[in-house]
Amino acid sequence: MLTFTVPLLALVLQEADSGRLALMEATARNPDLSKFLVIGAILFTIGVAGVLTRRNIIVIFMSIELILNAANLNFIAFSRYLQETGNLNAVAGQVFSVFVIVVAAAEAAIGLGIVIALYRNKETIWVDEIDILKW
């Protein structure tokens, strides 16, 4: 069990070459940029899994929101990193994430309008039953 979990933990904590538990604990006590990136990557993967596996179109839209939110987390984390390195215009990441939120809101409004129109015409919200474009 330990032989399997230690490399996995090392990958998640981004300490793959050290691979010793004491060092991992030290990095877990002081999370830096890479931990935020890992959280973003995991949230992104969960969102992709939701889009690929669920049948309910509304839950698929929610998974897309999860993906966009993971991207936002990366933008903010890098914005903070640039602030730390004394970069000019270091808040560019925060400005960009405002636009990501705007696009997410527009996408949700249009997508849910399509869902309502689809439900009115086809009486279904299961994506595998909406197949009139398939041959």
Binding site: L11, V12, Q14, A16, S34, V38, A41
Partner: peptide
Amino acid sequence: AAGLLFAMNTGY
């Protein structure tokens, strides 16, 4: 996920 984590490891 594995690709992202590996890429981050070296990139970071």
